[in-house]
Amino acid sequence: MDLTQLAKALAIGIGAIGPGIGLGIIGGKAVEAVGRNPEVTGQIRTIMILGMAFTEAVAIYALVISLIIS
């Protein structure tokens, strides 16, 4: 039985769980922060995008692993 396909799917599937939760937290916290003081929306957005980029990188690693598996 060829488990390569399953390995690919699991690599990105499991690997995306953590970053997914993390992105949700970042987005939610950013919305909270904007709700608390809306006058710094621009700054919060920049920081949020940076944080999301870092978190997303983890998912990207998983994606790369799943692409490498062959």
Binding site: A53, F54, E56, A57, A59, I60, Y61, L63, V64
Partner: peptide, 9 residues
């Protein structure tokens, strides 16, 4: 992470 982020996306 720089390289793979951009590539991955």
């Amino acid at each position: 992470s720089f390289g793979f982020r951009l590539f991955g996306n």
